[in-house]
């Protein structure tokens, strides 16, 4: 079994069978992760570079851990400045790194399209760990895995994504992934943070969070970048919380079982209240655990190594 593509640049256009394979592979890795020695030799001799042009803690750690659990050799390259400012082009940086015999590149960059650009520069397999406002496919995959665990299926599931849809790569990847798996999607947030043509993705749009809660089986609550307020996209944090914040009171009013997800880090008391984040509704910490398993699955499936030894 293998994926239909040799890179993971996004979930747009990724067929259901590929997502299924990644999630199923991740499930077997979860079992390994629960063992006393949570490590397999699968990627021994393979070298992975984590190329992070944008600050990241959890995604980078999650990838690094996934690589180590698979016994791959890892190198980290972090730079907060863009290549243009540094004086070396991105093409040169990546070709230099590849000249050191790299098999796979995990890349995070503030510019959309950089992972695709890298596929044209080098032969290594490229995994997108978030590119600007474009996509963050492994985050969406771990969200899918968490939902599938909770509900046993994705087909027909109703998922509402709450928050900044315009600037959010997590939202975009989730929309593509969920639609591909047959789930229904609604987006909710202030109109200033929802792209004008988003309904063309086959999602529903609401500006009323209670309506979203009423409709959904699960909410994926996105982090609100506090600097968006400075650029005038919503009037105040206080009003954001009052209009779109997920509170226990709102959930109780809905009188139904609902599942809460958040990609982290949470602005407690802004998009999500503490007593919701830490409640039985929440599967936020399961998401983090699933993140490592999903990334192990993606690394393995793109490595070209036969997955047969896995059990």
């Amino acid at each position: 079994m293998s994926l239909s593509s040799s890179h993971l640049l996004g979930l747009e256009g990724v067929p259901r069978s590929d997502i299924q394979l990644i999630l199923d592979t991740a499930v077997s890795f979860k079992e390994i992760l629960s063992r006393d020695i949570p490590k397999v030799p699968t990627l021994r001799g393979k070298t992975v570079v984590n190329l992070f042009y944008e600050p990241s803690t959890r995604t980078r750690i999650s990838f690094e851990l996934a690589e180590k659990r698979l016994s791959a050799d890892t190198v980290n390259f972090s730079s907060s400045t863009s290549s243009a400012k540094k004086g070396e082009t991105l093409r040169d940086t990546i070709r230099n790194i590849e000249a050191m015999n790299i098999d796979m590149v995990v890349v995070r960059h503030s510019a959309a399209g950089v992972p695709l650009f890298l596929t044209k520069c080098v032969d290594a397999a490229i995994i997108n760990a978030g590119d600007g406002m474009h996509e963050h496919p492994t985050q969406a995959l771990l969200d899918l895995l968490s939902l599938r665990e909770k509900f046993g299926k994705l087909e027909g599931l109703k998922v509402a994504i709450i928050g900044d849809i315009t600037h959010g790569r997590v939202a975009t990847s989730n929309i593509f992934g969920l639609k591909s798996m047959g789930a229904e999607v609604m987006v909710c947030g202030p109109k200033t943070l929802i792209p004008r043509d988003v309904d063309q993705f086959g999602v529903q749009v609401t500006y009323n969070v209670d309506e979203a809660i009423e409709w959904a089986d699960a909410l994926n609550v996105l982090r609100i970048q506090l600097e968006r307020q400075d650029s005038g996209l919503f009037p105040s944090i206080r009003e954001y919380h009052a209009e779109f914040g997920i509170t226990l009171e709102r959930l109780n009013r809905a009188k139904k079982e609902i599942t809460i997800m958040h990609p982290g880090p949470i602005n407690r008391g802004v998009e999500l209240d503490s007593n919701v984040a830490d409640s039985d509704f929440s599967i936020i910490l399961q998401q983090v655990t699933n993140g490592v398993a999903v990334r192990m699955a993606v690394l393995l499936l793109l490595s070209g190594v036969e997955a047969s030894g896995l059990n």
Partner: peptide
């Protein structure tokens, strides 16, 4: 500005 800009994550 269109659905394509949203897809591509470009302002």
């Amino acid at each position: 500005e269109s659905m394509i800009s949203t897809r591509l994550g470009l302002l």
